[in-house]
């Protein structure tokens, strides 16, 4: 082990040990990153559906091009709506966190334009049903208008809304609040301020909602 005695080798060993230490620290800190609790930023914007006075508030931050967000919305998200939002036990806030590409931003704008016609939930679902890869033109303006047609929205005002860019400010606020909440991935769901990262099973969300309801 003579080679360990020279100063260059020692320098290499120190650098390598620091790298390993960084990994160990990351491992420990990643186990504690679900504890963010900041209802203020989560509920300060977005579109609320359901009873505004419901005892529990569920917030979702999503990117329309993210396949995991599609899994959440078309899976546990639908069940949560049926069991808790439609029954008045919880309300649901839609917030956007587009980061995958321009089409994410465009789809977010389209969803907010559908919201102007009180069809956010349906439009949200139709976007995810049509998910077909990232940045491949799926959410071009033409396709987004076709989706609006399929839902029998008023296409003229929808197109006007899309070209007016009137919702850009709202989307930017969602992104800013998401950053303040420390969101690093989508979907990020907050149930009464408790941050849940990634798509979980309906049962997992149910446990947290029931706890928030005091059951």
């Amino acid at each position: 082990m003579d080679f360990l005695k020279n100063k260059f080798t020692l320098f290499g060993l120190i650098v390598f040990t620091i790298s390993i230490l960084i990994i160990v620290i990351t491992l420990f800190s990643s186990n504690n990153n679900n504890s963010a609790n900041n209802d203020e930023y989560a509920t300060s914007g977005g579109i609320l559906l359901g009873d505004p006075n419901a005892p529990v508030t569920i917030v979702k931050f999503t990117d329309y091009q993210c396949p995991s967000c599609a899994s959440f919305t078309l899976g546990p998200g639908k069940q949560i709506f049926r069991e808790y939002v439609d029954t008045g036990k919880a309300n649901f806030i839609y917030r956007n966190y587009p980061f995958i590409g321009d089409e994410s931003f465009q789809a977010a704008e389209a969803a907010l334009c559908a919201s102007d016609q009180d069809r956010l939930k349906d439009y949200d679902e139709i976007i995810y049903v049509n998910w077909n890869g990232q940045n491949k033109g799926t959410y071009s303006e033409k396709n987004l208008i076709t989706m609006a047609e399929l839902l029998q929205l008023n296409v003229n005002s929808f197109s006007e809304c899309m070209s007016s860019d009137k919702h850009i400010k709202n989307i930017q606020k969602d992104i800013d609040d998401g950053k303040k909440l420390g969101i690093k991935s989508t979907p990020s769901v907050l149930i009464d301020g408790e941050l849940i990262l990634g798509t979980k099973s309906y049962g997992d969300y149910r446990v947290i909602i029931e706890r928030a309801l005091g059951n």
Partner: peptide, 26 residues
């Protein structure tokens, strides 16, 4: 090798922070 160590350390951190069934902004 030092550059490679920095890159692979960063990749390992990304990999550890990867949440299952999610899209990471990193």
């Amino acid at each position: 090798s030092l550059l490679g160590l920095v890159v692979t350390t960063y990749l390992t951190i990304l990999s550890i922070g990867q949440i299952e069934a999610s899209c990471s902004i990193q």
